[in-house]
Design a protein around this nucleic acid. Structure first.
Lengths: 213, 213
DNA sequence: CTTGCGTGATCGTTGAACAATCCCTAGGGT
DNA sequence: ACCCTAGGGATTGTTCAACGATCACGCAAG
């Protein structure tokens, strides 16, 4: 479920940087100078570079040789790529999911998480919960590798969210759609749920791309 | 196509380590002590650690904190996981591939590569070519992210190949199956090609698991 | 045979140092 | 006024040496 809390300065720096990015404190395109980060993060330059390597591998940072590392900026083409992968992964996972005893506990938990956050007006938390919902869908495939990849995808996508001016308009419409997909899946209609999910993703892609420029 | 030739000591160390692993010079389970690798690779300990990070992220190495890094050992469960992901990715990519003008150039190139290697009796090269073939199938989806993931998967899987005692029996049967899949796809029968591919993968999984213990 | 402890070795992290590369600006030419 | 070139300053890429923290191994005691 939750990511393992690894000890160590490098891992801590990774977590702090990642949180800062998905919280919007570090806007996409921001340059992260090594020397100016060693202070706030309380790590040495070498350890910081190791943290950078991890985040670059995850796609959250980009390194331009001899120029520095920058918070990744997602082009429309890259966002389209992410959604292409999501449609493939999520729909396949949902379509081949077991229906005899539906495994929707995780999906329910994510839906509840999203609804509570929506009632509290915390739209960034709603976005996080929505991403959790989709991670739970992929988890239906039962593959640790797929789970790890999906977490990467959602982290990357949240970089696109932080640039959006209207978080409520971006996330609110999808809370009820999550519920519909869960209901359809639990009713044994995996194929219909997968179709709903595909429509959901295409709609979400349009919203994200529309909120960008 | 080929991986980008990045400059830098760290990237060079990554390539040399990865090549050593998929060539079988570094057997799975081998411990890679930092101090004893700085000499042969001609890099400092810090740079070596950076190279380790990359390969750990790729799944080729495993880090046990305060104990060192080891060449990854694939358990049967992990191999099964890899094949589960492959079935999902490759079959989806092939099923949704364009059939009007089939894009099979890459697949043909990989088939030829495999056949030439088979005639030369270089079975490890045959395995490499077969992996290229499947990377080309995923490339039909047109997603850079999927391509990168598939390269990771094939690299991991080759770790399982190096332990096999009978490389010919492991790789030879699949050369002609590659050709059949290509033919079916070019004939416009994407669905049948996907079914062939699924059978192929399930058979390959059995062979790999059978060659292991 | 098992348990506990000490020793040695390795890892995790730090700080400093140097070379390589890039950005920016000042200067000269047209 | 504009463009091109050269230099200085800053940042990155890489290496090295050192320290504490942690683990593996062996030996002694029960």
């Amino acid at each position: 479920m939750t990511t393992v809390e690894q000890p160590g300065s490098a891992a801590r720096a990774v977590r702090r940087l990642r949180d800062s990015m998905i919280n919007g404190e570090l806007a996409p395109g921001t340059r992260l100078a090594e020397s100016s980060l060693t202070g706030p993060l309380e790590v040495s330059r070498n350890t910081l570079r190791e943290a950078f390597s991890t985040l670059i591998e995850e796609g959250l940072l980009v390194r331009l040789p001899h120029r520095g590392v920058f918070v990744a900026t997602l082009s429309p083409a890259q966002i389209a790529d992410i959604y292409r992968v999501r449609v493939l992964l999520e729909c396949s996972a949902l379509r081949q999911a077991p229906v005899r005893p539906p495994r929707a506990e995780g999906m329910h938990a994510a839906v509840d998480e999203a609804r509570r956050a929506a009632e509290a007006g915390e739209w960034r938390a709603v976005g996080t919960a929505n991403m959790h919902f989709h991670e739970r869908i992929v988890a239906l495939a039962g593959s640790p590798r797929l789970d790890a990849w999906m977490r990467q995808l959602t982290a990357e996508l949240r970089l696109a969210f932080v640039a959006a001016p209207d978080l409520e308009g971006l996330h609110r419409p999808f809370v009820t759609m999550n519920e519909e997909i869960t209901t359809a899946y639990e009713a044994g209609e995996a194929a219909r749920a997968a179709d709903l999910l595909r429509d959901y993703l295409l709609a979400s892609e349009r919203v994200v791309l529309g909120h960008l420029p």
